[in-house]
Simulated assay, not measured.
Amino acid sequence: MVLDSLPWRRKTDAAPPDPFEPAPFLRLAFQAPVKLILYHAYHTITSLRSAPTPLKHPIRIVCISDTRGHIVDDVPDGDILIHAGDMTIGGSVPELQAQVDWLCSLPHKEIIVISGNHDTYLDPRTRPSLRDDQRAGAVDWKRVHYLQHRRLSLSIEVEPPSADGEETHLLGRETKSRRVRIYGAPQIPARGDMNVHAFQYLRGRDAWSETVPEDTDILVTHTPPKYHMDLSLPSGMGCEHLAAEVKRVKPTLHVFGHVHWGAGQEVVWWEGCHDAYEKGMRVQPRWFRGLLSPRLWWNAFRVVYRGLRELIWDKVWGGQGPNTIMVNAAQMHGSIGRLGSPIQVVDI
């Protein structure tokens, strides 16, 4: 008798969980209990802090990503519309052109677009994977600013917000021209076939250091930075080298997508609480799932201690340190294949 044919030998190898799907809370509590405490302590404390104060003449940024060939209904008005990649499913020229035509029909003053890993045609390395009819011709970008490792400086005419609800374009209201510097880059840690999915690099490789101009106001990438809106537990699907680059530059706004379940906004305060959070999340516990890791417990303590100090400084004395508003603008609701996440709007 062949042992492999016995019933008790069948289905012993379960498929590994998809890292782009959220892990159940109970599994996280069993696998990484200290990191779970650290993660929720950090996000609870930082959520209590005051929101960054926009300038007197704010610029309204409307953020979307991962539309995958769909047309988004009821896009809010704003000064700048940003699409952070994955405009299409297959990445063909007709798909891309359809998305560009839709974006150009929207009333926003400026439209910024980068590529995502599904936008195959835009990466010369993956373009040959398309059929001849899918890559015939070229994309007419019209008034869309397509950024591929490129910096753009825009001058935006803005008006102060109305205190009483009146229309802000009424005669006599003060207007001001504000210059905003935007940098866009599409590369992501590998996810899928490197010959089909665009702009990928091997996970762990540094594709970011010293690439973003220091005076960048708005950074647009397709991948999230590691440990921020990227399904951070148990391991995080963002890029650690991008996270270090964002910390170096400290843009006012960072827009991305790619990890659909991470959709939303958060403010990162570049202070001691955040430093302890990232150091703790990087710890790889070896024994008893981190319960006996002094480094992990120490950083969890520092998150609470430094976070409470910074919260008191904010609430009592009104102090606000350097910060970046991070926006995961993915429109796809998880992996269900249809839109569902809200459009993100930020005033800076």
Rank of each mutant, 00 (worst) to 15 (best):
T67Q: 09
Q99A: 15
D193C: 14
T53W: 03
V283T: 07
H258C: 06
A15C: 07
G307C: 03
V212Y: 00
T175F: 08
H40C: 07
D347W: 02
I325P: 01
L253Q: 04
L233N: 06
A136D: 15
N299I: 04
Y39N: 13
L147W: 12
H228G: 00
Y201S: 11
L296P: 04
F25T: 07
R143F: 01
V139F: 05
H333M: 11
E240D: 10
P33Q: 06
P54L: 05
K35P: 01
V75C: 07
A329E: 10
D217I: 11
E21R: 02
F256C: 09
L154H: 09
M332A: 08
Q31P: 00
G78L: 06
S162C: 14
N328I: 08
T44M: 12
V303K: 02
A14K: 10
W270N: 03
G340S: 11
Y227P: 02
A263E: 10
G264V: 10
G116Y: 09
T216M: 08
R338H: 13
R127L: 03
E157T: 14
A138D: 12
D66I: 01
Y227R: 13
D74C: 12
Y146M: 11
L96W: 06
H274V: 00
A23T: 15
D101W: 02
R179M: 02
R125N: 13
T223Q: 07
A136H: 08
V2I: 09
S115I: 07
V268E: 05
T324K: 01
A41K: 00
D66R: 01
E310V: 01
A23E: 12
I61K: 00
H260D: 07
L170F: 09
Q97L: 10
R282C: 06
M326G: 01
D119R: 00
L55S: 12
L171E: 15
M229W: 00
F30Y: 12
G321I: 03
Q99N: 13
T120R: 15
S293D: 13
D123F: 04
V327E: 11
K226E: 03
V267S: 05
Y305K: 14
L28Y: 06
P19M: 05
F199G: 00
L96C: 08
L202P: 11
I182H: 03
E245W: 02
